[in-house]
């Protein structure tokens, strides 16, 4: 089913500023799409709209056939929990929880924690943190923290991964490692990936690139 954006626009702030204009985009299930463009081109804003974190000022976005403006909040929250994984430039790990607990955080909502525990340990192993499950975020390096965040985004085996500059604050080795995990999810699990990046090398990993400039697809 995928995501379909029709004529969407976004106006923010006071005085009102237009950041996206007349965007038409279809992302099919299983696709790997990179949103590229210079800073301020509107790529992150588009990602937040496509992932339902934000709502458009104009036009409609259909997520699996549901208009995100009309979808019931309860359904949307469940959809976000079970079918979406987010990776941001900053890891947003909870400082009080261990790496394993952070990975398991999305499973707490509906009480799947016990069932997912061994899978969480597997994911940490896949991202190269097999002996660091019980470490707190402050006991991990920046790259390791981001890899925990990637593992967390995969714990619910989501249909969609939305990644906003996931390698932005990492060195090239850690950056490559994170991109490999994302690519594997797309290739091996068929996860739809929407990636925001300004790094042309990482953008090359995607099967399709959508370039934005001044809030428009070019």
């Amino acid at each position: 089913m995928g995501i379909i954006a029709k004529n969407i626009g976004k106006i923010i702030g006071e005085p009102p500023t237009r950041i996206l204009t007349d965007i038409n985009l279809e992302i099919k299930s299983g696709e790997f799409v990179a949103l590229t463009g210079r800073s301020g081109s509107g790529k992150s804003s588009l990602l937040y709209l496509l992932s339902s974190i934000d709502v458009p000022s104009e036009g409609t976005i259909e997520l699996e056939g549901h208009n995100i403006k009309k979808i019931k909040k309860k359904v949307l929250y469940r959809f976000r929990n079970e079918k979406m994984g987010f990776i941001f430039q900053f890891h947003y790990l909870i400082a009080e929880l261990t790496a394993l607990e952070n990975v398991l955080l999305p499973t707490r909502k509906f009480g799947y924690e016990k069932q997912k525990k061994s899978y969480a340990a597997d994911l940490l192993k896949q991202v190269g943190l097999e002996n660091k499950e019980y470490r707190l975020p402050r006991q991990l390096s920046g790259g390791e923290q981001q890899r925990v965040a990637v593992a967390r985004s995969l714990i619910m085996e989501p249909q969609y991964i939305f990644a906003d500059e996931p390698t932005g604050s990492l060195d090239s080795i850690n950056g490559d490692m994170v991109m490999n995990i994302i690519r594997d999810a797309n290739e091996k699990l068929g996860t739809t990936v929407v990636l925001v990046t300004h790094d042309p090398d990482f953008a090359q990993e995607a099967k399709r690139q959508v370039h934005l400039a001044d809030g428009k697809i070019v």
Partner: peptide, 13 residues
């Protein structure tokens, strides 16, 4: 605030 943001993005209402 950041914890709240990530929890909300995970579907916590």
């Amino acid at each position: 605030r950041k914890d709240i943001a990530i929890l909300r993005s995970m579907g916590y209402n």
